[in-house]
Amino acid sequence: MGRTQESWLPPPPPAGAHWISPPQLFEPVSCTYTYLLADLKTKEAVLIDPVLETAKRDAELVRELGLNLLYAANTHCHADHITGTGLLKKILPGCRSVISRDSGALADILIREGHALEFGAFALEARSTPGHTDGCLTYVLSDRTMAFTGDALLIRGCGRTDFQQGSSETLYRSVHEKIFTLPGECLIYPAHDYTGQTVSTVDEERTLNPRLTQSCEAFVQLMNNLNLPQPQQIDFAVPANLKCGIQDAAT
């Protein structure tokens, strides 16, 4: 079952590998997970889904570990927080912002399906998983042991589909075709969790996710009737995130 912050420790790195397993860095207001991955031999690193309010914390960790942050990569254009990429680029020169070209956002690097973000001996493959937004990406580690799913797939849930070009049918296809086809033991790391869980697996979500184990028709009906309130930060988060890492971080 999905592990909690109290009950789960990161797995050891692959045999012979020189790398940091992803520490989950938590931002409590939006319940966002930020992930730091690094090759310890080359010191090259990637940060996934940084948050503005915790960017200084993340930069300090990067410095403490002696890492060279190559990329601050977003899984999509978030509506519930402002990305920390702009501030990270100011604090850590050489860091470049990354987002999907299909998001409509600005960034130093715009990527699509199949693009690989390389850091040392490792790489993150971008898989297009739209449905929550048009520009959602899932980043899959090159050995397919880990997938960073953003809001497309959460632990026992998924992202909402009622704004930002959302489509329930598209999200259902994305998860089933691009995430559930990964190896069953592949670890699932979501962008958010609201109950304290930290990680799941493809097998767990493929068999236990109460939304995505339904038929596509039932899933669409469920998603169309969630009646959720708008995210509190959406009016200023989305415009800022459309300038993903290009915006003046001071504003």
Rank of each mutant, 00 (worst) to 15 (best):
V220G: 09
L228D: 05
E60P: 01
G84P: 08
R156F: 12
G184N: 13
T83I: 05
K41C: 02
S142R: 06
F180W: 01
S7A: 14
T149R: 01
L153A: 06
L124K: 09
A17C: 13
T138K: 02
V140N: 00
A218E: 15
P28K: 09
L36S: 07
N224W: 04
E125I: 15
T75E: 06
A249R: 07
Q233G: 00
G150S: 05
A73D: 08
A121I: 01
T133P: 06
L222C: 06
T251F: 12
R144N: 12
R211N: 08
A218S: 15
A79Y: 13
W19H: 05
R156W: 14
P22D: 03
I246H: 05
T42C: 04
P229G: 09
W19Y: 09
L141T: 05
L154F: 14
D235W: 08
G120E: 03
L124Y: 08
P11L: 15
L137T: 10
T54V: 11
R112C: 12
L52I: 06
V238E: 06
N209S: 04
I111D: 10
S21C: 10
I246G: 01
D58W: 10
T251W: 09
P210T: 00
E118W: 11
I48V: 13
Q24V: 15
E217Y: 11
E169D: 14
A38F: 03
Y189L: 09
L154M: 13
P130I: 05
D203M: 11
I20M: 14
T129Q: 09
Q247W: 07
Q233I: 04
P28G: 03
A38T: 07
G196V: 08
L36Q: 07
T149K: 03
T83V: 05
T54N: 10
